[in-house]
Nucleic acid binder design. Structure first.
Lengths: 362, 362
DNA sequence: GCGTCCACTGTAACCGTTTACAGCGCCGCC
DNA sequence: GGCGGCGCTGTAAACGGTTACAGTGGACGC
């Protein structure tokens, strides 16, 4: 039923080797023969079997992507970035996301063996490190959001970003600043909390336990956290949420509570997901070049897969350029919109690299 | 370097067949031997080579996804649905999106041969039909957004949805209703335009060419279209945009032009992307269960791949249940928010099946 | 006339699995 | 004691390609 290279060979009265040579333009073959083979392949609708080919060439032109269980615009953006970059290099993406448990993730990692040339892995929880021992041996890996051991990694400047945003709130005159903390087991959440505390400490502004409310990175979590913040003995005048989803949840909770933003309560988020500029009032946030994270991960994988094509990315014998540092930390920028009052620059336009993201369909 | 089944066999002093039997629990093997093999595999960190395995079993546990060039929240949602469903069935996703030209898409389709068990294909333009002739023969296919030939397809009720929304605007008293049309070559765009016209015709409300402005499904396109609409000899009092991205672009253009929504101009969109309820004012839209489209596509593929497991999805010799009709049209519902005035039911909550989509990270 | 080289083509090994088939030892039954 | 059956194991043939190697025949130089 399905037509193989052997069928084409028989039809064109040549050997399979010749068919392979024609179709891959490897080795010399007579024009006449070539034409005959090509015609036969066309007529039989021959399509080479990718799996079989990669078995011998050990090149799959596929990159594996393993993501944890958490959904949302952040992931969509990462995947978008990965996809665009991969496609640009002629690669596909083998996606395996939404893994609830480390065990599941390990299974996913294993199943990628022999199917991908490289891997992009985003570790979910702090306790997922041992997963890395089970990485397929051959394929290069780039870690997202976590720098662990000697693996090449791409992380976000969580600490710096959070600190910058809280500094901004302090500069606006706020002295009672609450925060909605991210999921407990999450590494980014921890760093953002540290950044928040660092900014307060610098300014010698006291912090209080009742101002640090646990969230879970979801909109609902942000919504729920507002109750505790409003009920605090000393009510904060500003809220820094550890991500935009929680900030958006907080905005709706505040609206329901009749607390006006930003006049009675300033609100800021983290990530600057596309939606942030559309909410009412537009949300101030720590801009993370999310899609860029994906494209950059692919670029690094490409450099590892094709060293000869990317000499500039290699570490020379002497110098180690920043391009090759195994751990790359992505800078963040502040995007100040109306939700935190102050000199709201209307709607800061995201960097050009993010342009085009608003195209949509249908 | 990379350890194969042969290495394990040698180490455990058995044949490769026995190793395979142990690891797949196929065929009888002595407990002692089994333990020895298992131990060896563990110690050598053996991971089976998926490609090689699927070459002989011709099962890849992977579903191919081929999407056109257009980005946006709509696609993220589809992919999210596909991914969740695929994972639920133990399948991976091989993603190949962002294909600019039919030729590229054809190449993508070809390269999937031997790598996937089934395919979800979204055709971009009207002229992309001939692509289907180049589908890999063996694998079952589900078409998204287009019903073509005998292929199983999942489509949106574009015509009905558009008509319902325009009817709603008419019921609110609007008689001059403009529309921002989608990309010319796009099938959905055409159907939505027909739905718009049908609603006007029913109500015997005249339509004018100057009220039908071409857009391209992007926010920028929607923004630009507003200029023409406002400059019309008879200015409309309502705008129906063929998708939400354009509607959102229109909202910002109207704000810039000082036209208040909904008082001076009602606005409605199509798709009900998650962002729709967050814009200001919240956007009335035709709700499409976007993620559901993805999960449903996977379900149908599963039914085709494992007929024995999904007897309820099979067409019995007698009855043809709606479950098995090759072409399934997804119903839409109206979600009325503030952007079109009228009895804005505040913020209609999306159906439960879409719940949880707001969870996000980090 | 003969050796060399080159363009072209075929044979067969190999990639890493699964699996049909066969072989072996042992038990139990006639 | 022969024999069928069973439990366990190994051998080897696929799966569908790529590619090293070994021809073949003709052109060409000496």
């Amino acid at each position: 039923m399905t037509v193989t290279i052997r069928d084409v060979a028989r039809d064109a009265k040549v050997s399979v080797a010749t068919v392979s040579r024609v179709l891959n333009a490897s080795g010399p073959v007579h024009p006449t023969t070539s034409a005959r083979v090509r015609e036969a392949a066309e007529r039989l609708r021959y399509v080479p079997h990718g799996g079989a080919r990669s078995l011998v060439t050990s090149e799959t032109y596929t990159l594996g992507v393993v993501l944890p269980d958490i959904y949302g615009e952040f992931f969509s953006e990462v995947i978008r970035g990965l996809d665009a970059a991969a496609r640009g290099h002629g690669y596909h993406l083998l996606l395996s996301s939404a893994h609830a448990s480390p065990a599941e993730m390990k299974a996913a990692l294993r199943s990628m063996r022999g199917r991908v040339d490289g891997l992009v892995v985003m570790l979910p929880d702090l306790d997922a490190l041992e997963l890395l021992a089970h990485l397929p041996d051959g394929a290069p890996v780039v870690l997202l959001n976590r720098a662990v051991g000697q693996f090449p990694a791409l992380t976000i400047d969580n600490h710096g970003g959070a600190r910058a945003m809280v500094r901004h709130l302090l500069a606006l005159g706020h002295r009672r600043i609450g925060t909605i903390v991210g999921a407990e087991s999450n590494a980014d959440a921890g760093e953002r909390l540290r950044g928040y505390r660092a900014a307060l400490a610098e300014a010698a502004v006291p912090r209080r336990a009742e101002w640090e409310v646990r969230g879970d990175f979801t909109e609902a979590g942000g919504h729920a956290a507002v109750g505790a913040l409003l009920a605090a003995a000393e009510r904060p005048t500003a809220i820094f949420a550890a991500n935009d989803a929680m900030a958006i949840g907080a905005l709706s909770a505040l609206r329901e509570a009749g607390v006006r933003v930003p006049h009675e309560m300033a609100v800021a988020g983290f990530d600057d997901i596309p939606m942030a500029r559309y909410v009412d009032p537009p949300l101030s946030s720590v801009h993370v070049p999310i899609a860029r994270l994906g494209t950059r991960a692919v670029e690094r994988l490409m450099a590892m897969l094709h060293p000869e094509l990317h000499p500039e990315l290699q570490s020379g014998p002497g110098v180690a350029s920043p391009m090759v540092s195994r751990h790359e930390k992505c800078a963040t920028t502040l995007v100040i919109r109306r939700s935190c009052g102050g000199r709201a620059s209307g709607d800061a336009v995201p960097p050009a690299s993010e342009a085009g993201r608003d195209a949509t369909f249908p």
